[in-house]
Amino acid sequence: MRARRPPARGVRCPHAQTVWWGRDVSDSLRLTADDVLYTCLPLFHTDALNTHAHAMAVGASCVIGERFSATRYWERVAESGATAVCLLGAMVPMLLAQPASPADRAHRAWRGLSPATPGSAWEPFRERFGATLVDGFGSTETNLVIGATPGDQRPGYLGTERDGFSARVVDDLLDPVADGVAGELVVRSAHEFAFCTGYLGESGPGPTVWRRTGDRVVREGDGWFRFVDRIKDVIRWRGENVSL
């Protein structure tokens, strides 16, 4: 007998959540009005869906590519005039696996937002393509709660708490665990409507309530967070959390 797949749930995302996405990511990438931001991710993905907000927050330009192509990626980045790109961590090894090409450096992009980038790929990517990758933690339901900047990086880590957001690591009873111990990440925002207001047909938590993420992480003593794995019954496939 086949197991029935649970129905997808629509997320109620208020307009203010998009505004905060734009403010926080543009600050993390250090975007200015002179920048051009490029993404070729599908528009059902939070990163791509809010790319325009990242650009609008500082008056930058935004270019949305038709699709991801590992063989032509840097050519399309160059054609767009991009100075910053949006990737997923799974795309990074794909680009590194391509044969060396003059296009590898024939572009203006010098940094990129790339959640879930393998720590071992960070330096080879920068050396080959001339772009510094910036990691972070966020989801459709939340915002860029944890992140870094091009000038403050630690390969293999998500980053530290962003201004206006709080992150905590807890055990099964939701009690905080010590630094260096793996547990579930719970997050909270000090900004009203910076998180989703719940799911369609369900009442949502208040703006200051801790939100469970289902992600197992470790917080180091200096405040840097490292992703370990998913707690819930899902698999990670090319940067996406897929429900079983």
Rank of each mutant, 00 (worst) to 15 (best):
Ala190Lys: 13
Arg128Phe: 13
Arg162Val: 05
Val181Ser: 13
Arg126Glu: 15
Asp171Trp: 12
Thr160Pro: 00
Pro155Leu: 04
Gly147Cys: 04
Asp152Lys: 00
Phe129Ala: 04
Gly164Tyr: 02
Leu144Ala: 07
Glu127Asp: 15
Ala178Glu: 15
Glu127Tyr: 02
Glu184His: 14
His191Gly: 05
Phe165Ala: 06
Thr160Arg: 15
Asp179Met: 07
Gly156His: 02
Arg126His: 11
Val186Tyr: 01
Pro155His: 00
Arg126Ser: 13
Gly159Met: 01
Leu133Cys: 10
Thr132Ser: 05
Gly180Phe: 09
Gly156Ala: 08
Asn143Cys: 12
Thr149Leu: 03
Phe125Leu: 11
Gly180Thr: 07
Arg126Asp: 06
Leu185Ala: 12
Gly151Ser: 09
Leu133Ser: 02
Arg188Trp: 07
Thr140His: 02
Arg126Val: 07
Leu133Pro: 00
Glu161Trp: 01
Leu173Glu: 15
Arg168Tyr: 05
Gly159Phe: 00
Asn143Tyr: 06
Thr140Gln: 07
Ala167Lys: 00
Gly151Arg: 02
Pro124Tyr: 06
Gly180Asn: 12
Gly151Phe: 02
Ala131Thr: 11
Leu174Arg: 14
Ser166Leu: 15
Leu158Tyr: 00
His191Lys: 06
Val186Asp: 09
Ser189His: 13
Val186Asn: 04
Ala190Gln: 15
Phe165Pro: 06
Asp163Met: 07
Arg154Ser: 07
Gly183Asn: 04
Val187Thr: 08
Asn143Asp: 12
Leu185Gly: 09
Glu127Gln: 15
Phe129Cys: 05
Pro150Glu: 01
Ala178Trp: 05
Thr132Glu: 01
Arg128Ile: 10
Leu158Met: 10
Gln153Ser: 08
Pro176Thr: 14
Val169Asp: 11
Val177Cys: 15
Phe129Tyr: 10
Glu184Ile: 13
Asp163Gly: 08
Thr142Ile: 10
Ser139Ile: 05
Phe165Thr: 02
Asp172Lys: 09
Pro176Arg: 12
Val145Pro: 03
Leu144Lys: 00
Val187Pro: 02
Ser139Pro: 10
Thr149Arg: 03
Asp163Pro: 08
Glu141Ile: 04
Leu144Trp: 01
Thr149Gln: 02
Gly136Cys: 11
His191Glu: 12
Pro150Ala: 06
Thr149Lys: 01
Glu141Asn: 12
Gly138Cys: 13
Gly147Leu: 02
His191Ala: 08
Arg128Val: 14
Ser139Arg: 07
Ala190Tyr: 05
Asp152Thr: 03
Leu173Arg: 15
Glu184Ser: 14
Arg188Glu: 12
Val181Asn: 10
Thr142Met: 09
Val177Thr: 12
Ala190Phe: 11
Pro155Glu: 06
Ile146Phe: 03
Gly180Pro: 05
Val145Lys: 04
Arg128Leu: 15
Arg168His: 08
Ala178Cys: 10
Arg154Phe: 05
Val186Gln: 14
Asp171Gln: 11
Asp172Val: 14
Asp163Glu: 13
Phe165Arg: 01
Thr142Tyr: 04
Pro124Gln: 13
Val181Ala: 15
Ala182Ile: 08
Val134Arg: 00
Thr149Trp: 01
Ser139Val: 08
Val177Asn: 13
Asp172Met: 09
